[in-house]
Simulated assay, not measured.
Amino acid sequence: MAYDIHKERRQRLRKLVRHPQLRELVIEQLKTPWSPEQIAGRLLADGVSAVRVCSETIYRFIYGKEDQALELHQHLAEGRSKRRPPQLEETP
């Protein structure tokens, strides 16, 4: 039961797997010097795709286990092969 729910959620969250044309467009734009934030913004502003994608979805695609073989991280500005954990802000 829990595994079925997990499997359904996993498939539902994977927009770039379910929409191959969108996936190819994102990969193409990553290979140009565009950041995931720029790609997400352009897709929304231009209305290129009926499916909305946020920058976090693109980062998860880049650093996901299934798609690491594509080595898309090398097209990012910092080119890290592993994602850094978010930095917590310290309050005085």
Rank of each mutant, 00 (worst) to 15 (best):
M1Q: 11
M1W: 09
A2L: 13
Y3W: 10
Y3M: 10
I5C: 09
H6W: 04
H6S: 05
K7G: 00
K7N: 02
E8Y: 11
E8K: 15
R12L: 11
R12F: 12
L13Y: 09
R14W: 09
R14Q: 15
K15F: 03
L16W: 08
R18E: 12
H19F: 14
H19A: 04
P20E: 04
L22Y: 10
I27G: 00
Q29G: 03
L30G: 01
P36V: 00
E37M: 10
E37F: 08
Q38C: 01
Q38E: 14
Q38R: 09
I39V: 02
A40Q: 00
R42L: 10
R42Q: 13
R42N: 07
L43C: 02
L44C: 08
A45S: 13
A45Y: 07
G47W: 01
S49M: 13
A50E: 15
V51H: 04
R52C: 06
C54I: 12
C54H: 10
S55I: 03
E56C: 07
T57A: 07
I58R: 02
I58P: 00
Y59Q: 13
Y59K: 12
R60F: 06
Y63G: 00
G64D: 15
G64I: 07
G64W: 05
G64L: 06
E66V: 11
D67L: 10
Q68D: 11
A69W: 13
E71W: 03
L72Q: 04
Q74K: 15
Q74H: 11
Q74R: 15
H75G: 05
H75W: 15
L76Q: 09
L76E: 07
A77C: 07
A77K: 14
A77L: 11
A77F: 08
E78D: 14
G79S: 04
G79N: 06
R80Y: 14
R80F: 14
R80L: 15
K82C: 09
R83N: 09
R84Y: 11
R84M: 13
T91W: 09
T91E: 06
P92A: 12
P92I: 08
